[in-house]
Design a protein around this nucleic acid. Structure first.
Lengths: 187, 187
DNA sequence: CCGATAACTAAACAATCGTTTAGTTATTTT
DNA sequence: AAAATAACTAAACGATTGTTTAGTTATCGG
């Protein structure tokens, strides 16, 4: 052993994540990352290998935030009402600290949809698949719908969720909440 | 007068627009524009001044496409049913030529939301304002709703439209159409 | 306390970014 | 046909991109 790291990797990734969240991948430069993370380029590269590596770790860091919301959602036994609560929780994350950065997952989905970055894309699709499975499970809870409407409503909600995330970059929180209410009025 | 231009500005901008539509502003380089537009950097700069100028013209070119859809929408006397048709028309544009590039306006809205580019942002907000005015006018047509619900439904539809545009980058056309049907089921 | 080693600083890397400029080619007008 | 002029080609611009590397500093185990 020799000299110790003067930073904690989890902490600097959290900061990097916030930068990517706000600006996206392409518009965030190593220079900006250096400044925001508070460490030298060398340290960034020795810890995460590349800018791409920093981004991948940032995605994981964001997913941790989302996971606690997912966990609550998973444990809910309220059916459709539970989905609605989950939507509210997700929106709250988008407006954290008064910011309007949208959802990092959705932002990334959009930015990378025309690329061939399989690593990032893999993270995206696995996320969406998990969400869909969860939605279907919750929709089944009410016990009144047939499988066909459940599939349809799950797709609907998945798309609404993605739309919400996109809209939370440009719409006010009030508009978003109105939208959620309207969406769940007849499910 | 001397030598004539070997290209038509409208035509090369149409090509540039398709590139921005697919990749966004930041990820599209002058090199790519040269290749796609089929003209030299010099010609691009002498015609449009800068990359930013090319983008602004591209936005206008896209708006022309949208305007024909708007025009039809404007002339519709079908109220909510007319809005639904408008949504379908808009989605068709997003899936033009079998592509899945979303809507250039929405894509731009997302990409530029954290910038301070007032020119681009101006184009965006004016677009959204026009759409909202139109939506309200159409919602009034049915004559059964009070102003409060009209405002609420207009906001809802505006957000749904934006969400649809975002989703059309990653979702299948069938999913999008299901979403539209579900959205209009109770308006 | 000393040699080993890992983390740091800072400078440089090649490549690419958007932009400009010098030099050549083609068209128009006199 | 010659002079004028605008559009072309192509090379270079400085700045910035992501990445690497050489040299220094700090901390560890022996």
């Amino acid at each position: 052993m020799a000299r110790k790291k003067a930073y904690i990797e989890e902490e600097v990734i959290e900061k990097a994540m916030r930068l990517f969240w706000r600006n996206g991948y392409e518009s965030t430069s190593m220079q900006m990352l250096e400044k925001e993370m508070g460490i030298n380029k060398f340290s960034i590269y020795s810890s995460f290998g590349s800018k791409h590596g920093v981004f991948l770790e940032s995605l994981k860091s964001y997913k941790k935030k989302v996971n606690s919301i997912f966990e609550k959602f998973k444990n809910s036994t309220n059916g459709v009402e539970g989905i609605k609560e989950f939507f509210y929780d997700s929106v709250n994350l988008c407006y954290q600290e008064g910011n309007q950065k949208g959802c990092l997952i959705s932002n990334t989905y959009n930015e990378f949809s025309e690329t061939e970055d399989d690593l990032v894309k893999g993270e995206m699709t696995s996320f969406m698949d998990n969400l869909k499975t969860l939605l279907i499970a919750k929709l089944r809870m009410d016990g009144t719908k047939d499988e066909k409407t459940i599939t349809k409503q799950a797709n609907f909600l998945l798309l609404a969720k993605h739309g919400l995330a996109a809209a939370s970059r440009v719409n006010s929180r009030q508009e978003i909440e109105d939208y959620i209410e309207m969406t769940f009025k007849n499910l």
